[in-house]
Protein backbone atom coordinates (compact mmCIF):
# COMPACT_ATOMS: atom_id res chain seq x y z
CA UNK A 1 0.00 0.00 0.00
CA UNK A 2 2.65 2.47 1.09
CA UNK A 3 4.79 1.53 -1.89
CA UNK A 4 1.90 2.11 -4.22
CA UNK A 5 1.33 5.57 -2.80
CA UNK A 6 5.03 6.30 -3.10
CA UNK A 7 5.02 5.16 -6.71
CA UNK A 8 2.02 7.30 -7.51
CA UNK A 9 3.62 10.37 -5.96
CA UNK A 10 6.79 9.80 -8.00
CA UNK A 11 4.76 9.33 -11.15
CA UNK A 12 2.89 12.56 -10.54
CA UNK A 13 6.13 14.41 -9.75
CA UNK A 14 7.72 13.07 -12.91
CA UNK A 15 4.76 14.10 -15.01
CA UNK A 16 4.75 17.56 -13.45
CA UNK A 17 8.47 17.97 -14.18
CA UNK A 18 7.83 17.29 -17.84
CA UNK A 19 4.98 19.81 -18.05
CA UNK A 20 5.61 23.41 -19.04
CA UNK A 21 5.07 24.61 -15.49
CA UNK A 22 7.57 22.10 -14.12
CA UNK A 23 10.16 22.88 -16.78
CA UNK A 24 9.92 26.61 -16.12
CA UNK A 25 10.21 26.21 -12.37
CA UNK A 26 13.24 23.93 -12.74
CA UNK A 27 14.81 26.31 -15.28
CA UNK A 28 14.23 29.24 -12.91
CA UNK A 29 15.89 27.47 -10.01
CA UNK A 30 18.86 26.41 -12.16
CA UNK A 31 19.34 29.91 -13.60
CA UNK A 32 19.09 31.44 -10.11
CA UNK A 33 21.75 29.03 -8.81
CA UNK A 34 24.07 29.62 -11.79
CA UNK A 35 23.77 33.39 -11.41
CA UNK A 36 24.45 33.06 -7.71
CA UNK A 37 27.63 31.06 -8.36
CA UNK A 38 28.65 33.58 -11.02
CA UNK A 39 27.96 36.84 -9.20
CA UNK A 40 27.54 36.02 -5.53
CA UNK A 41 24.78 35.37 -3.02
CA UNK A 42 23.14 38.78 -3.18
CA UNK A 43 21.48 37.84 -6.49
CA UNK A 44 19.56 35.06 -4.78
CA UNK A 45 18.77 37.15 -1.71
CA UNK A 46 17.50 40.07 -3.79
CA UNK A 47 15.35 37.75 -5.90
CA UNK A 48 13.74 36.15 -2.88
CA UNK A 49 12.98 39.45 -1.16
CA UNK A 50 11.63 41.20 -4.26
CA UNK A 51 9.69 38.07 -5.19
CA UNK A 52 8.03 37.79 -1.80
CA UNK A 53 6.55 41.25 -1.95
CA UNK A 54 5.59 41.01 -5.62
CA UNK A 55 3.77 37.81 -4.73
CA UNK A 56 1.51 39.69 -2.31
CA UNK A 57 0.44 42.25 -4.90
CA UNK A 58 0.15 39.68 -7.70
CA UNK A 59 -1.93 37.28 -5.59
CA UNK A 60 -4.50 39.98 -4.95
CA UNK A 61 -4.57 40.83 -8.63
CA UNK A 62 -4.99 37.17 -9.62
CA UNK A 63 -7.80 36.84 -7.09
CA UNK A 64 -9.69 39.87 -8.43
CA UNK A 65 -9.33 38.50 -11.94
CA UNK A 66 -10.28 34.95 -11.10
CA UNK A 67 -13.21 35.58 -8.77
CA UNK A 68 -14.63 38.95 -9.78
CA UNK A 69 -13.55 38.88 -13.43
CA UNK A 70 -12.18 42.40 -13.11
CA UNK A 71 -8.94 43.27 -14.93
CA UNK A 72 -7.81 45.49 -12.10
CA UNK A 73 -5.70 48.49 -13.07
CA UNK A 74 -6.26 50.31 -9.79
CA UNK A 75 -4.52 47.64 -7.73
CA UNK A 76 -1.39 49.76 -7.34
CA UNK A 77 -3.52 52.43 -5.66
CA UNK A 78 -4.34 50.04 -2.82
CA UNK A 79 -0.59 49.54 -2.49
CA UNK A 80 -0.39 53.36 -2.31
CA UNK A 81 -3.11 53.44 0.36
CA UNK A 82 -1.03 50.91 2.29
CA UNK A 83 2.09 53.08 2.13
CA UNK A 84 0.12 56.18 3.11
CA UNK A 85 -1.52 54.51 6.11
CA UNK A 86 1.80 53.05 7.19
CA UNK A 87 3.43 56.48 6.97
CA UNK A 88 0.82 58.19 9.14
CA UNK A 89 0.72 55.37 11.66
CA UNK A 90 4.44 54.75 11.91
CA UNK A 91 5.72 58.35 12.02
CA UNK A 92 4.21 59.13 15.46
CA UNK A 93 5.29 55.70 16.69
CA UNK A 94 8.89 56.30 15.63
CA UNK A 95 9.02 59.78 17.24
CA UNK A 96 7.74 58.20 20.44
CA UNK A 97 10.25 55.38 20.21
CA UNK A 98 13.11 57.85 19.67
CA UNK A 99 12.42 59.39 23.07
CA UNK A 100 11.49 56.10 24.76
CA UNK A 101 13.93 53.51 23.38
CA UNK A 102 12.88 50.86 25.93
CA UNK A 103 9.17 50.82 25.11
CA UNK A 104 7.52 47.72 23.70
CA UNK A 105 6.63 49.69 20.58
CA UNK A 106 10.17 49.14 19.27
CA UNK A 107 9.07 45.62 18.44
CA UNK A 108 5.31 46.04 18.09
CA UNK A 109 5.29 49.37 16.21
CA UNK A 110 6.01 47.97 12.73
CA UNK A 111 3.52 45.14 13.25
CA UNK A 112 0.81 47.57 14.35
CA UNK A 113 1.60 49.61 11.23
CA UNK A 114 1.16 46.63 8.94
CA UNK A 115 -2.09 45.57 10.62
CA UNK A 116 -3.43 49.13 10.35
CA UNK A 117 -2.56 49.22 6.65
CA UNK A 118 -4.25 45.86 6.18
CA UNK A 119 -7.45 47.09 7.83
CA UNK A 120 -7.51 50.35 5.87
CA UNK A 121 -6.78 48.44 2.64
CA UNK A 122 -9.61 45.99 3.32
CA UNK A 123 -11.98 48.88 4.07
CA UNK A 124 -10.93 50.64 0.87
CA UNK A 125 -11.70 47.41 -0.98
CA UNK A 126 -15.14 47.15 0.60
CA UNK A 127 -15.91 50.79 -0.23
CA UNK A 128 -14.84 50.41 -3.87
CA UNK A 129 -16.85 47.21 -4.24
CA UNK A 130 -20.00 48.72 -2.73
CA UNK A 131 -19.78 52.14 -4.40
CA UNK A 132 -18.29 51.20 -7.76
CA UNK A 133 -18.22 47.57 -8.82
CA UNK A 134 -21.48 46.29 -7.39
CA UNK A 135 -23.20 49.30 -8.99
CA UNK A 136 -21.78 48.32 -12.36
CA UNK A 137 -22.72 44.70 -11.74
CA UNK A 138 -26.35 45.71 -11.21
CA UNK A 139 -26.42 47.69 -14.44
CA UNK A 140 -24.34 45.75 -16.92
CA UNK A 141 -23.78 42.08 -17.51
CA UNK A 142 -22.75 42.47 -21.12
CA UNK A 143 -19.22 43.61 -21.89
CA UNK A 144 -18.45 43.22 -18.20
CA UNK A 145 -14.69 42.79 -18.63
CA UNK A 146 -14.28 45.89 -20.79
CA UNK A 147 -16.57 48.07 -18.66
CA UNK A 148 -14.99 47.04 -15.39
CA UNK A 149 -11.54 47.56 -16.88
CA UNK A 150 -12.41 51.15 -17.82
CA UNK A 151 -13.87 51.67 -14.37
CA UNK A 152 -10.67 50.52 -12.67
CA UNK A 153 -8.59 52.91 -14.78
CA UNK A 154 -10.93 55.74 -13.75
CA UNK A 155 -10.73 54.66 -10.12
CA UNK A 156 -6.94 54.71 -10.36
CA UNK A 157 -6.93 58.30 -11.68
CA UNK A 158 -9.34 59.42 -8.95
CA UNK A 159 -7.32 57.80 -6.16
CA UNK A 160 -3.98 59.15 -7.39
CA UNK A 161 -5.37 62.67 -7.64
CA UNK A 162 -7.16 62.41 -4.31
CA UNK A 163 -3.82 61.56 -2.73
CA UNK A 164 -2.24 64.57 -4.39
CA UNK A 165 -5.09 66.86 -3.35
CA UNK A 166 -5.33 65.86 0.29
CA UNK A 167 -1.81 64.72 1.16
CA UNK A 168 0.37 66.57 -1.35
CA UNK A 169 2.69 65.26 -4.00
CA UNK A 170 5.84 65.09 -1.90
CA UNK A 171 7.60 61.92 -0.80
CA UNK A 172 6.37 60.71 2.58
CA UNK A 173 8.80 58.07 3.70
CA UNK A 174 10.50 56.60 6.74
CA UNK A 175 14.14 55.69 7.11
CA UNK A 176 13.57 52.29 8.67
CA UNK A 177 11.18 50.08 10.62
CA UNK A 178 13.71 48.07 12.59
CA UNK A 179 16.84 49.50 14.12
CA UNK A 180 20.00 47.43 14.45
CA UNK A 181 22.82 45.91 12.48
CA UNK A 182 22.11 44.22 9.16
CA UNK A 183 21.86 40.45 9.08
CA UNK A 184 24.53 38.49 7.20
CA UNK A 185 23.46 35.59 5.03
CA UNK A 186 25.85 33.96 2.54
CA UNK A 187 28.27 36.92 2.90
CA UNK A 188 25.52 39.33 1.95
CA UNK A 189 24.36 42.10 4.24
CA UNK A 190 20.60 42.33 4.39
CA UNK A 191 19.02 45.21 6.26
CA UNK A 192 16.64 44.11 8.99
CA UNK A 193 13.80 45.82 7.15
CA UNK A 194 14.33 43.76 4.02
CA UNK A 195 14.60 40.53 5.97
CA UNK A 196 11.43 41.33 7.91
CA UNK A 197 9.65 42.29 4.69
CA UNK A 198 10.39 38.84 3.36
CA UNK A 199 9.27 37.14 6.59
CA UNK A 200 6.06 39.17 6.45
CA UNK A 201 5.45 38.15 2.82
CA UNK A 202 6.12 34.49 3.59
CA UNK A 203 3.76 34.47 6.58
CA UNK A 204 0.98 36.22 4.67
CA UNK A 205 1.34 33.99 1.60
CA UNK A 206 1.27 30.85 3.79
CA UNK A 207 -1.75 32.06 5.78
CA UNK A 208 -3.55 33.00 2.60
CA UNK A 209 -2.81 29.65 0.98
CA UNK A 210 -4.10 27.85 4.08
CA UNK A 211 -7.23 29.99 4.07
CA UNK A 212 -7.97 29.31 0.40
CA UNK A 213 -7.33 25.56 0.62
CA UNK A 214 -8.72 24.46 3.95
CA UNK A 215 -11.40 26.85 5.19
CA UNK A 216 -15.03 26.74 4.19
CA UNK A 217 -15.02 30.39 3.06
CA UNK A 218 -11.78 29.97 1.12
CA UNK A 219 -13.26 26.99 -0.70
CA UNK A 220 -16.36 29.03 -1.46
CA UNK A 221 -14.18 31.76 -3.03
CA UNK A 222 -12.49 29.16 -5.23
CA UNK A 223 -15.87 27.69 -6.12
CA UNK A 224 -17.16 31.08 -7.27
CA UNK A 225 -14.01 31.54 -9.37
CA UNK A 226 -14.49 28.17 -11.05
CA UNK A 227 -18.23 28.23 -11.66
CA UNK A 228 -20.54 31.00 -10.55
CA UNK A 229 -23.73 29.11 -11.33
CA UNK A 230 -22.39 26.03 -9.58
CA UNK A 231 -21.66 28.15 -6.52
CA UNK A 232 -25.21 29.53 -6.50
CA UNK A 233 -26.64 26.02 -6.84
CA UNK A 234 -24.83 24.75 -3.75
CA UNK A 235 -26.04 27.75 -1.75
CA UNK A 236 -23.11 30.17 -1.79
CA UNK A 237 -24.25 33.81 -1.67
CA UNK A 238 -22.40 35.58 -4.47
CA UNK A 239 -22.54 39.14 -3.14
CA UNK A 240 -20.88 38.29 0.16
CA UNK A 241 -18.11 36.33 -1.53
CA UNK A 242 -17.44 39.09 -4.06
CA UNK A 243 -17.23 41.69 -1.30
CA UNK A 244 -14.92 39.51 0.78
CA UNK A 245 -12.66 38.76 -2.19
CA UNK A 246 -12.32 42.42 -3.09
CA UNK A 247 -11.43 43.41 0.45
CA UNK A 248 -8.97 40.50 0.76
CA UNK A 249 -7.12 41.36 -2.43
CA UNK A 250 -6.96 45.07 -1.53
CA UNK A 251 -5.74 44.18 1.95
CA UNK A 252 -2.95 42.07 0.42
CA UNK A 253 -1.81 45.03 -1.72
CA UNK A 254 -1.95 47.36 1.28
CA UNK A 255 0.15 44.93 3.36
CA UNK A 256 2.75 44.93 0.59
CA UNK A 257 2.67 48.73 0.54
CA UNK A 258 3.17 48.98 4.28
CA UNK A 259 5.88 46.32 4.29
CA UNK A 260 7.89 48.17 1.65
CA UNK A 261 7.43 51.76 2.94
CA UNK A 262 11.16 51.97 3.74
CA UNK A 263 11.94 51.37 0.03
CA UNK A 264 8.97 53.09 -1.59
CA UNK A 265 8.09 56.37 0.15
CA UNK A 266 4.43 57.24 -0.26
CA UNK A 267 3.59 59.56 -3.16
CA UNK A 268 0.57 59.66 -5.48
CA UNK A 269 1.75 57.31 -8.22
CA UNK A 270 3.87 54.97 -6.08
CA UNK A 271 1.54 52.12 -7.01
CA UNK A 272 2.37 52.06 -10.70
CA UNK A 273 5.58 50.05 -10.45
CA UNK A 274 4.10 47.28 -8.26
CA UNK A 275 1.03 47.27 -10.51
CA UNK A 276 3.11 46.63 -13.62
CA UNK A 277 5.15 43.98 -11.82
CA UNK A 278 1.97 42.28 -10.69
CA UNK A 279 0.55 42.30 -14.20
CA UNK A 280 3.76 40.76 -15.55
CA UNK A 281 3.37 38.03 -12.97
CA UNK A 282 -0.31 37.43 -13.60
CA UNK A 283 0.13 37.20 -17.38
CA UNK A 284 3.12 34.92 -16.89
CA UNK A 285 1.32 32.67 -14.45
CA UNK A 286 -2.03 32.57 -16.19
CA UNK A 287 -4.98 34.83 -15.46
CA UNK A 288 -6.70 34.14 -12.18
CA UNK A 289 -4.25 31.47 -11.05
CA UNK A 290 -3.53 32.46 -7.43
CA UNK A 291 -0.91 29.87 -6.52
CA UNK A 292 0.77 30.20 -9.91
CA UNK A 293 1.09 33.89 -9.12
CA UNK A 294 3.33 33.14 -6.15
CA UNK A 295 5.72 31.10 -8.31
CA UNK A 296 5.49 33.65 -11.12
CA UNK A 297 6.39 36.47 -8.71
CA UNK A 298 9.75 34.84 -8.00
CA UNK A 299 10.37 34.29 -11.72
CA UNK A 300 9.68 37.92 -12.58
CA UNK A 301 11.81 39.01 -9.63
CA UNK A 302 14.68 36.83 -10.85
CA UNK A 303 14.33 38.20 -14.34
CA UNK A 304 14.46 41.75 -13.01
CA UNK A 305 17.44 41.10 -10.78
CA UNK A 306 19.35 39.38 -13.59
CA UNK A 307 18.55 42.16 -16.04
CA UNK A 308 19.90 44.77 -13.64
CA UNK A 309 22.93 42.58 -12.97
CA UNK A 310 23.92 41.65 -16.52
CA UNK A 311 22.40 44.27 -18.81
CA UNK A 312 21.85 47.45 -16.86
CA UNK A 313 19.43 48.96 -14.39
CA UNK A 314 17.49 50.93 -17.02
CA UNK A 315 16.43 47.69 -18.70
CA UNK A 316 14.62 46.04 -15.83
CA UNK A 317 11.18 46.77 -17.28
CA UNK A 318 12.12 46.17 -20.91
CA UNK A 319 13.15 42.54 -20.58
CA UNK A 320 10.09 41.36 -18.62
CA UNK A 321 7.84 43.25 -21.07
CA UNK A 322 9.51 41.53 -24.01
CA UNK A 323 9.00 38.18 -22.31
CA UNK A 324 5.33 38.97 -21.71
CA UNK A 325 4.88 39.71 -25.41
CA UNK A 326 6.49 36.38 -26.29
CA UNK A 327 4.27 34.55 -23.79
CA UNK A 328 1.12 36.23 -25.07
CA UNK A 329 1.99 35.13 -28.60
CA UNK A 330 2.96 31.52 -27.88
CA UNK A 331 1.13 30.55 -24.68
CA UNK A 332 -1.73 33.02 -24.09
CA UNK A 333 -3.10 31.02 -21.16
CA UNK A 334 0.16 31.56 -19.23
CA UNK A 335 2.71 29.05 -18.03
CA UNK A 336 0.56 27.74 -15.19
CA UNK A 337 -2.65 28.29 -17.13
CA UNK A 338 -4.88 25.43 -16.23
CA UNK A 339 -4.83 22.56 -18.70
CA UNK A 340 -7.75 20.98 -16.94
CA UNK A 341 -10.86 22.32 -18.60
CA UNK A 342 -14.26 20.74 -18.66
CA UNK A 343 -15.64 19.57 -21.98
CA UNK A 344 -18.65 21.81 -21.64
CA UNK A 345 -16.82 24.79 -20.16
CA UNK A 346 -16.19 27.67 -22.45
Amino acid sequence: MAEQVKKRIWERLFKWCKSLAGLTVIATVVIALLATIDRGGYVLVNTIITGGMTALVAMGLALTLGVLNIPMFAHGEYFMIGTLTAYYVFTPISTYVNTHPESALVFWGPLITVVAAMIVGALAGVISEVLVFSQLRKRSRENWVMNSFLLTVGLSVVLINAHQLFFGADFKGITRYWAGMPITVMDVYISRDRAMAFVLAAVVVAAFWFFMTYTRTGRAIRAVAQDETGALIVGIGLNGILLLTMSLSCALAAIAGAGLLFMYPSYPSVGLEPLYMAWFVVILAGLGNVLGAVMGAFMVALLKVLTIEYIGSGWDFVVPSALIIVILIFKPSGIFGSEVRGVLDK
Binding site: R219, A223, V234, I236, G342
Partner: peptide, 18 residues
Protein backbone atom coordinates in the same frame (compact mmCIF):
# COMPACT_ATOMS: atom_id res chain seq x y z
CA UNK B 1 -23.47 20.21 -14.44
CA UNK B 2 -21.59 23.34 -13.29
CA UNK B 3 -18.97 21.30 -11.47
CA UNK B 4 -15.91 22.93 -9.94
CA UNK B 5 -13.50 21.53 -12.51
CA UNK B 6 -10.27 22.39 -10.69
CA UNK B 7 -11.38 20.76 -7.46
CA UNK B 8 -11.20 17.08 -6.64
CA UNK B 9 -14.29 14.87 -6.49
CA UNK B 10 -14.19 14.93 -2.70
CA UNK B 11 -13.91 18.75 -2.64
CA UNK B 12 -16.83 19.05 -5.05
CA UNK B 13 -18.96 16.90 -2.78
CA UNK B 14 -17.82 18.93 0.23
CA UNK B 15 -18.95 22.08 -1.57
CA UNK B 16 -22.32 20.41 -2.13
CA UNK B 17 -22.68 20.26 1.64
CA UNK B 18 -21.83 23.96 1.96
Amino acid sequence: MNLFVNMTVQENLAMGAY
